[in-house]
Amino acid sequence: MTTPTTQVTGRSGQPRDPRRELGAALSRWASGSAAAIGVVRVLDRHGFGSVESGQLIAGTPGGEVSGLLYRGALDDSAHPLAAEAAGGAATVREAHVAEASALAAGLACAGGATLVGHPLPAGPAAALGAALEAARPAALLSTVDGGAVLVLTGPDLSEEHGDLGSVTAAGAAEARALLRRGSTTTERVTAEGVDLLVDVWVPVPSMLVVGEGALGAALHAQAGLLGWSARTVTTLDDARAAVADFTDADVLVLLDHAPAFDALLLDGIAHGRGFLGALGSRRTQAARRERLLGAGTTEEQLAGIHGPVGLDLGARTPAETAVSIVAQVIALRAGRAASALAGSTGRIGG
């Protein structure tokens, strides 16, 4: 059985997002012989203090479990429910946690939750697992009794797996509206008179700054304002190890101009995941481009490297340059051209 509280690290030695581990488990189980996987979600709650949205446990009929609900405080109720759900039963169950147990788990106070356990067919489970493991946007929708299930994936949740019957289109529209808020959320919504439980997962970018200097510090400050994580490495080996663990939500900003770091960009191109940005003058970019072409990189692959990195904002200071870089990342993640709002006719704010 997978221990939900075990911290897993990637090749870089940094802790991996538990949702990636959950995604890997879903993908593995879905590719096996199981017709369905059981999932347990929070339908309603009271107490516990502040808790993260998008909490999910998944399990197999044999008792394997991955994921986490409220720091493990609900394991005694959630784990058996996951096994029942994997066997085909959709069940709604009340769970309560006493003060001492809640505090021991790291929660603020005692509380209770209404849990829904339901089967997740192999096809939708595989799609959800792939999205979570790669840190791509995803949504899981079900009727509140777990009788019908829909998984949405893709940057704008346009890919549908499963269905909710006559309310599939309306439910998907509700999930896409929640996606535009830009944060992971769990909501009860009503679509054409049907009560649905919707979990939407929006990956939070993680920035890797390679090289030191005032711009690196400014990038850390911008990442903090946005709620992103950021770290700096200075050696090629550390940088390559970090990029080997990249997901679609990760961001590389290469500050070091040394030719040795071309290997890092080649790694990023080969993996095809995340945002690859490289600082440097036009002359530096041209020299780097020639070296990468000489190493066998194609023009199409070079288009995946954003260099000079950042939007043309007229930035002059490190702080302004950092703004231009994170603005480019935000625009690309949203599929926007980063033009002035006054000159556009589309939706404002996502």
Rank of each mutant, 00 (worst) to 15 (best):
residue 171 G to Q: 10
residue 171 G to K: 08
residue 174 E to D: 15
residue 175 A to I: 05
residue 178 L to R: 11
residue 180 R to K: 14
residue 185 T to N: 08
residue 186 T to A: 10
residue 187 E to P: 08
residue 187 E to H: 15
residue 189 V to K: 10
residue 189 V to F: 10
residue 191 A to K: 05
residue 192 E to H: 10
residue 193 G to C: 03
residue 193 G to P: 03
residue 194 V to E: 12
residue 195 D to A: 15
residue 195 D to C: 05
residue 195 D to R: 15
residue 197 L to S: 08
residue 197 L to W: 07
residue 199 D to Y: 04
residue 201 W to Y: 12
residue 207 M to G: 11
residue 207 M to W: 11
residue 208 L to S: 07
residue 209 V to C: 06
residue 210 V to G: 10
residue 210 V to I: 01
residue 214 A to W: 12
residue 218 A to G: 03
residue 219 L to T: 06
residue 222 Q to F: 07
residue 225 L to D: 09
residue 228 W to T: 13
residue 230 A to D: 11
residue 232 T to G: 09
residue 234 T to Y: 02
residue 235 T to V: 06
residue 235 T to H: 12
residue 240 R to A: 15
residue 242 A to S: 13
residue 243 V to S: 06
residue 244 A to C: 02
residue 244 A to G: 09
residue 245 D to C: 10
residue 247 T to F: 04
residue 249 A to V: 06
residue 250 D to P: 11
residue 253 V to L: 04
residue 255 L to E: 07
residue 256 D to Y: 02
residue 256 D to P: 04
residue 257 H to V: 15
residue 259 P to H: 00
residue 259 P to T: 02
residue 260 A to P: 12
residue 260 A to F: 10
residue 261 F to T: 11
residue 261 F to H: 06
residue 261 F to Y: 10
residue 262 D to Y: 00
residue 262 D to M: 02
residue 263 A to D: 15
residue 264 L to Y: 04
residue 264 L to T: 09
residue 266 L to H: 07
residue 266 L to F: 07
residue 268 G to V: 03
residue 269 I to R: 09
residue 271 H to R: 15
residue 275 F to L: 03
residue 276 L to P: 01
residue 277 G to D: 08
residue 277 G to S: 08
residue 277 G to V: 06
residue 279 L to M: 14
residue 279 L to S: 11
residue 279 L to R: 02
residue 280 G to N: 02
residue 281 S to I: 00
residue 281 S to Q: 03
residue 281 S to E: 00
residue 281 S to D: 00
residue 281 S to P: 01
residue 281 S to T: 04
residue 282 R to F: 00
residue 282 R to H: 06
residue 283 R to S: 14
residue 289 R to M: 02
residue 290 E to C: 01
residue 291 R to I: 06
residue 293 L to I: 06
residue 294 G to L: 01
residue 294 G to E: 01
residue 295 A to I: 08
residue 297 T to Q: 11
residue 298 T to F: 06
residue 298 T to I: 04
residue 298 T to V: 06
residue 299 E to F: 13
residue 299 E to H: 13
residue 300 E to G: 14
residue 302 L to I: 01
residue 303 A to L: 14
residue 305 I to F: 01
residue 306 H to G: 00
residue 308 P to S: 10
residue 309 V to R: 00
residue 312 D to Q: 11
residue 312 D to R: 13
residue 313 L to P: 03
residue 313 L to C: 05
residue 314 G to Y: 07
residue 316 R to V: 15
